[in-house]
């Protein structure tokens, strides 16, 4: 072997010193683990993909589904996750989600502005005809 260029070189040469060898080890519960795991309760809507039998006992509840993007996500989770359409519909939903948020943010000024423009248009046409 060439010169050992950096501290600790070959310190883990022995495969048995490596924590992930073998990758799959004989089954045993991890330190600190507690059984049974009580099921988490949630008031918000959380999706489970169609290929999964039951709900896991623990899950995240961030950003519950809403609006059209929420509807699309519901459709996507109706397919198991080995179906390409599951992922394609989710990607579409993500884009819709962004537009929904942009529109919602724009609404406070966009709606009045559109109103004013429309009224001006009507007034102008009336005036032009007169």
């Amino acid at each position: 072997m060439p010169d050992r260029p950096i501290p600790g070189a070959a310190a883990d040469l022995e495969p048995s010193s490596r924590p992930g060898v073998p990758m799959e080890r004989a089954p045993q519960p991890m330190a600190g683990a507690r059984m049974p795991i009580r099921p988490q309760h949630s008031d918000v809507r959380v999706f489970k993909h169609k290929g999964r039998a039951g709900f896991p006992p623990v899950f995240g509840t961030a950003q519950p589904p809403r609006g059209l993007s929420g509807l699309l996500r519901k459709v996507a989770y109706g397919y198991p996750d080995h179906w390409a359409r599951h992922w394609m519909i989710l990607l579409l939903a993500d884009r819709v989600d962004v537009w929904e948020h942009r529109l919602a943010r724009a609404a406070p000024w966009a709606v009045p502005t559109a109103g004013v423009l429309a009224l001006t248009g009507v007034a102008w046409r009336k005036w032009a005809r007169a």
């Binding site: 683990a33 896991p56 006992p57 899950f59 996750d81």
Partner: peptide
């Protein structure tokens, strides 16, 4: 996010825990 007790966690495959993700396998 690994539970420590499922089939995978018990075998050291904590990145495959089946008790923390409803959305995908």
């Amino acid at each position: 996010i690994s539970c420590g007790t499922c089939f995978y966690c018990q075998r050291g495959l904590t990145a495959s825990c089946e008790n923390s993700n409803p959305s995908s396998d």
